[in-house]
Simulated scan of single mutants.
Amino acid sequence: MTTAARNGLRVLDLCCGVGGAAMGYHRAGFDIVGVDINPQPRYPFEFHQADAIRFVLDHGHDFDLIHASWPCQHHTTLTKGTNQGREYPDLIPTGRAAMLTTGRPYVVENVQGSTVRRDLTLCGEMFGLGVVRHRYFEIHDFPTLQTPHIPHRGRVAGMRHGRTYQGPYVAVYGAGGGKGTVAQWQTAMGIDWTDQRKELAQAIPPAYTEHIAEQFLTAHSNARAAA
């Protein structure tokens, strides 16, 4: 996939993980600064180990766009089922409030079942990927177009409830149940700069944020032309 020329705009990538979201913005031409409370030695751009909420309050106004992937464990199906009773932080309300203080456009990404507004829902099939990975996106202060949700071509391959399924998609999570190889995960996600399963499992495909970045650039260009 080709990478666009630098456009002079900067994205602050909060709770950045290994940089799946960041790479999409980079491919669209943005410069990226990532922030995470944990070390991220394989993050491919400028990185700061820090509290994301404190960082956005202090520095968010210096950026053109803010992206946040607040921890999702509070909202996942596993937490509400298999892991019920475990306590996980819900940083979405606090994080949203912090981002709003900056006056900057922002994007919040999270899992199905989370409390983010469903301004945009993306799926790997929309981009021809080998992973389903539905994600919700809350978009603040710029319009986006919802890509049609193309019907899935089949099942996610792997073992569930003692039965093995074949299908065109890889299950990029966990370690058992006939999960694919690391190489299959990398290909399915469009991520080749890490070979760590946990990092891949927690990332989103760069194709998602590249799509959002293109929408932001269109809105940004239109706003400048109208000024």
Rank of each mutant, 00 (worst) to 15 (best):
Q84H: 13
M99Y: 08
Q84K: 15
F63K: 05
R42H: 14
E87P: 02
A68H: 03
P89W: 01
P41E: 02
Q73D: 11
D13Q: 05
Q84I: 12
L78I: 10
G29M: 12
D90M: 07
R54I: 02
G81T: 15
H74A: 15
G8L: 09
G17V: 09
T76L: 10
V18H: 01
Y43M: 02
G19M: 04
H26F: 08
R86C: 01
A22C: 09
P89D: 08
G8E: 07
I92F: 06
G95F: 04
L9P: 01
R27D: 11
A68S: 12
L9H: 03
H75R: 00
Q49S: 09
L9N: 01
F55V: 04
T94I: 06
G29P: 11
L12H: 01
K80V: 11
L65E: 00
P89I: 01
G17H: 13
H74L: 06
H59T: 03
C15M: 12
R54T: 09
N110S: 15
G29K: 12
S114H: 07
M99I: 12
N110W: 05
M23N: 01
L91Q: 05
I32L: 15
A68F: 08
R86Q: 13
Q49I: 09
V111K: 05
T77H: 14
A98T: 10
A98V: 06
I53G: 04
C72S: 00
H61C: 07
Y43F: 13
F55I: 04
G60H: 12
G81D: 15
V108R: 04
F30S: 11
P39H: 13
D51P: 00
Q73F: 03
F30W: 14
F45D: 09
H26T: 00
P41S: 04
R86T: 08
T115L: 06
G17M: 09
Q73H: 08
R104C: 12
I53L: 14
D31N: 14
A68V: 04
F45K: 12
N38H: 07
G95V: 07
V18I: 15
G19Q: 05
N38L: 10
G20Q: 04
M23H: 02
A28Q: 11
V11E: 06
V56C: 04
R27Y: 00
I32H: 07
Q40K: 15
I53M: 06
A97G: 01
D36G: 03
C16R: 00
N110H: 12
A52M: 05
Y88W: 13
L12F: 00
N38C: 03
C15G: 05
N110Q: 14
C15L: 07
A52Y: 02
M23R: 08
H48W: 03
T115E: 13
P71M: 08
M23L: 09
P41D: 04
I32T: 09
A28W: 06
R96V: 06
R10D: 13
C16F: 00
T101M: 08
K80N: 15
G20T: 03
D58K: 13
N7R: 03
G8N: 10
H75F: 15
A98M: 10
H59S: 05
H75E: 06
P44I: 10
I66V: 14
N110P: 10
G24K: 04
H74N: 12
T115Y: 01
C15A: 13
G8F: 07
R86F: 08
G34W: 01
L100P: 00
T102H: 07
Q49R: 15
D64N: 13
N110G: 14
H67S: 14
V18A: 13
P41R: 07
A52H: 03
E46Q: 10
T79S: 11
